[in-house]
């Protein structure tokens, strides 16, 4: 009897093989949208420092139909990130704290916090200008 262990190579498209892997890759892909959107916001800040005209140009870009589609896609991916982030967060906390506060309490507090912050930002932004 001779040993001849067979090592299976990792397929190039391994992430297509299971629903759990596909979901993971979509979750990770959210970062591409957030990276581009972050760069977009950086460009906006830059244009803001360049004066009213430059700022108006950046705002016009935001209203471009393709940009609105991209914003919608980014929002969807961001919400996926938000939900998965909150789902994972309690499990990263020190075990000592996890034993004191149930995971669901932490998740509820985070979702509540996100709702409050979102409402506050939209409210704060909208109010002064109405």
């Amino acid at each position: 009897m001779s040993r001849r262990p067979y090592v299976r190579p990792m397929p190039a498209n391994w992430f297509m093989s299971k629903p759990a892997y596909r979901f993971y890759m979509v979750r990770e892909a959210s970062c591409v949208f957030n990276l581009v959107y972050g760069l977009n916001l950086f460009a906006g800040l830059w244009q803001l420092t360049n004066g009213a005209e430059a700022w108006a140009g950046w705002l016009a870009l935001q209203a471009h139909p393709l940009m609105i589609v991209f914003a919608l896609a980014t929002l969807a991916m961001t919400l996926l990130h938000t939900v998965t982030f909150v789902e994972m967060a309690p499990r990263v906390m020190p075990q000592q704290i996890r034993k004191m506060i149930p995971d669901n309490t932490v998740k509820a507090a985070m979702f509540g916090g996100i709702a409050v912050v979102t409402a506050a930002i939209i409210g704060f932004t909208a109010m002064g200008a109405m």
Binding site: N34, Y37, Q62, A63, M67, H81, I122, T125, A126
Partner: peptide, 29 residues
């Protein structure tokens, strides 16, 4: 930061103001 802030920022900057749901003055220079 993305989880807490980005939904609101994208809503305002990317959707509500460009689509005219919020007035343009919201993001005035």
């Amino acid at each position: 930061a993305i989880a807490f802030l980005m939904p609101a920022v994208i809503l305002i900057v990317g959707l509500l103001v460009p689509m005219g749901i919020l007035p343009a003055e919201v993001l005035s220079y």
